[in-house]
Design a protein around this nucleic acid. Structure first.
Length: 303
DNA sequence: TGCCAGGCGGGGT
DNA sequence: ACCCCGCATGGC
């Protein structure tokens, strides 16, 4: 059936000052975002819309409001940016990227993302995720095109050996444990505390992974995912010991603690800690063009 | 070529 | 409340 003009399935999003290029480009893959537009996945991980960076959208399911929510357009980050403007780590981010918003993913995939960041570099972790999607090759047809989906918990459980092929190493057992827990309904996705607590019940999921997953899927910013990278940068910038970094972080960022961690990875292009400390000392606290993938340019490299 | 990296758990003291 | 080690993998 043909869509008529003025149909609610197409239109223009209310961006409320957000920069959709930044929102879609951040931590994305080339098969979902091409620089001009990208797919937005909601709830069960199904594609809900295609959104262009100028704000136009084509809705596949759900509502415009749900798409805006997923893209972070309905969230007021003015309090976060006010703090960031006078922060020794994030003032450059606040100045250069005021239109950035956090695009969320599903609780399941957010947990997998967290596991793939454990004890590894940013790039290696995202390569694992890229290979997981390509190896499981789950797709759906939308608007006449085949679109990659993230593997589901049951996909993982029916072919667990692909986890190793994707290079996840010893994290494979943790991802498999997560898949079982999600499939069996043991993970409470209804609230921040419950989500983190039930995730912690899976062997191999610690506080960093649980908190990161909660930030990336439910916008739970109250508990910052502190890893060694953030701890050392915070220690240097705030003049505290690494062991005291979390306390200081929470004191400064309050309800925005988790969001500030994500922003910092973007600001410093997720470069390894040694280089990140050098950039901090030189005051290069905003994304710079590089010949390697960064959180903002990942999509150009992993197509 | 050996290191080592946005953790974690299990074992110590 | 600390400290220490091993762990799969791939990049430098």
């Amino acid at each position: 059936m043909a869509m008529s003009l003025g149909d609610a399935a197409a239109g223009v999003l209310d961006t409320r000052g957000a920069d959709l290029y930044l929102v879609l480009a951040t931590y994305n893959f080339g098969f979902w975002f091409n620089g001009k537009g990208g797919y937005v996945f909601t709830q069960g991980g199904e594609p809900a819309a295609y959104v262009w960076v100028d704000g136009r959208y084509q809705l596949y399911r759900g509502s415009r409001e749900l798409v805006e929510e997923t893209l972070g357009l309905r969230e007021d980050l003015s309090g976060f940016y006010r703090l960031a403007r006078s922060d020794p780590l994030l003032h450059g981010f606040a100045e250069k990227l005021p239109g950035w918003r956090l695009r969320t993913t599903t609780p399941w995939w957010a947990a997998v993302i967290g596991v793939c960041q454990q004890n590894t570099g940013f790039l290696q972790g995202w390569r694992m995720l890229y290979r997981l999607i390509k190896l499981y090759a789950r797709t759906t047809r939308v608007d006449g095109k085949q679109v990659y989906l993230v593997p589901s918990p049951s996909d993982v459980l029916s072919r667990p050996y692909l986890l190793r092929e994707a290079g996840t190493g010893y994290r494979a057992a943790t991802i498999q444990g997560l898949a079982r827990a999600f499939r069996d309904g043991e993970i409470d996705t209804g609230g921040c505390k419950g989500f983190r607590e039930t995730l912690l019940g899976v062997k191999g999921v610690g506080s960093y992974t649980a908190r990161l997953a909660a930030v990336l899927s439910l916008r739970c910013y109250d508990e910052p995912p502190m890893d060694n990278w953030v701890r050392r940068l915070a220690a240097e910038a705030y003049g505290v010991e690494p062991r005291e970094a979390e306390e200081e972080w929470r004191r400064r960022w309050g309800r925005w603690s988790g969001l500030a961690v994500i922003a910092l990875t973007i600001a410093l292009d997720a470069v390894p800690i040694r280089k990140a400390l050098t950039r901090l000392r030189r005051g290069i606290l905003y994304p710079v063009p590089m010949d390697k993938p960064t959180p903002l340019t990942l999509w150009r490299y992993m197509v």
